[in-house]
């Protein structure tokens, strides 16, 4: 058991709870109809009557995932991409710049 600031965390209790919930879910599932075969028209995807494409064609590649998120955050990402130039001189100037900022940060607090 791990004591945190506001309470505690015990993974063993959590796992027990997880198992109990799983058993309850299984019981509920077992109360369903036993004669359902899982075959027939209802298991197929319905794409407005269009023929379902081959399974090999439908894998969504990484570049297309979270397209909407990228689109809505376009402003943020274009700024970020601009900063990540990949130019080694810029890496050093960022380092020197941040050192200077820290310098101001530490000395200015004394003055105020």
């Amino acid at each position: 058991m791990l004591r945190t600031t506001g309470g505690y965390w015990d993974p063993v209790l959590w796992i027990i709870a997880f198992i109990v919930i799983a058993i309850v879910a299984y019981i509920i599932r077992a109360m369903g109809r036993g004669d359902y075969s899982g075959k027939g028209e209802q298991t197929k995807p319905y794409i407005s009557g269009v023929e379902e494409p081959e399974k090999e064609m439908v894998h969504i590649r990484a570049g297309n995932i979270y397209w909407g998120f990228m689109e809505s955050m376009k402003g943020y990402y274009s700024t970020m991409m601009k900063i990540h130039t990949g130019l080694v001189n810029d890496y050093i100037s960022w380092f020197v710049g941040i050192s200077a900022l820290l310098f101001i940060f530490i000395f200015l607090v004394e003055v105020i």
């Binding site: 991409m81 990540h84 130039t85 990949g86 130019l87 080694v88 001189n89």
Partner: peptide, 10 residues
């Protein structure tokens, strides 16, 4: 030229 040596970026 370090400007051209940047295949790794973003």
């Amino acid at each position: 030229d370090s400007k051209k040596v940047r295949r790794l970026k973003e």
